[in-house]
């Protein structure tokens, strides 16, 4: 077990440092790329926080859908093959829910400000109330 701070906290500190202390001293292209770099660290930070649980849930849904065991990558590849072959489609129970949950988790990490994510999340929460 590693000591404090957590990796997410370290990454957050570096992102804040770039954004708040470095970028104000930069201009033009370099300033733009510094902001992009800080945003990339934000992705890493969110992934460190969200992915462990999200990946475990994704894996268990994939096992249920495919009836197989394997790594996240193996089962995603298998699911792709099954969809391409037409053996699994949107009428397959739980497939749509699985894709929605997986995609919402990906976006919570990658682009939580994206308009399609914010709207999709609202729609998901509304349709899964109670």
């Amino acid at each position: 077990m590693q000591d404090q701070p957590t990796s997410a906290e370290l990454v957050q500190a570096v992102a804040d440092f770039i954004r708040d202390q470095v970028t104000p001293h930069l201009k033009g292209h370099v300033a733009f790329h510094a902001r992009v770099a800080a945003n990339a660290l934000d992705i890493v930070k969110r992934e460190l926080e969200i992915a462990p649980v999200a990946n475990a849930e994704e894996l268990s849904r994939l096992q249920a859908l495919t009836g197989k065991t394997g790594s996240l990558e193996d089962l995603n590849r298998l699911l792709c093959t099954e969809i391409e072959a037409g053996r699994i489609d949107l009428t397959t129970p739980c497939l749509a829910d699985h894709l929605w949950q997986t995609t919402l988790s990906k976006l919570a990490i990658d682009q939580p400000g994206y308009s399609g994510y914010r709207r999709g999340l609202e729609e998901w929460q509304t349709s899964h109330k109670g």
Binding site: I43, L90, A96, L99, W100, T103, L104, K106, L107, D110, Q111, Y114, G116, Y117, R119, G120, E123, W124, T126, S127
Partner: peptide
């Protein structure tokens, strides 16, 4: 890491929720 933006857009088009 913006490819996933299109995945949510595709789901909203092809597997819309109520």
């Amino acid at each position: 890491r913006r490819s996933s933006e299109n995945e949510i857009d595709l789901l909203r088009l092809l597997a819309p929720l109520g």
